[in-house]
Amino acid sequence: MLADYLIWVFIVIGLTFNGLGVIGLLRFPDVYTRLHAATKATTFGSLFTSLAVVTWGLWNYSQGGDSSNIVLSIHTIIAVASLLLTNPVGAHAIARAAYRSGVKPKNAVVDRLEVKE
């Protein structure tokens, strides 16, 4: 019963942040600020939706379910770990590639990287 409420709360938080990521992608002016919305808000949202799956699996297992529930939880944790590892690397690679190919940050108040190159 408590687990049901917890799962709903996790899913709502996750979908809220994923939705905000989509709105940010449409609203922000250039590639860097869009990367903020598109990669980070969605990581946080996906973390919470995955947490809901883990909670569901552990809850079913504790209520006398078979070990496939534990398997589901473990695999979801592995998916979250790889998401947390690959997401910043991908965002970093896109940002660096964009800067190298000459995209300047729009409306920027300061750009220390320009001085360097």
């Binding site: 860097y32 980070k40 947390l84 910043p88 970093h92 800067y99």
Partner: peptide
């Protein structure tokens, strides 16, 4: 990676 995972900052 920590900086990039925190929204608002992105290492370039």
């Amino acid at each position: 990676n920590s900086i990039t995972l925190t929204p608002g900052t992105l290492s370039v």
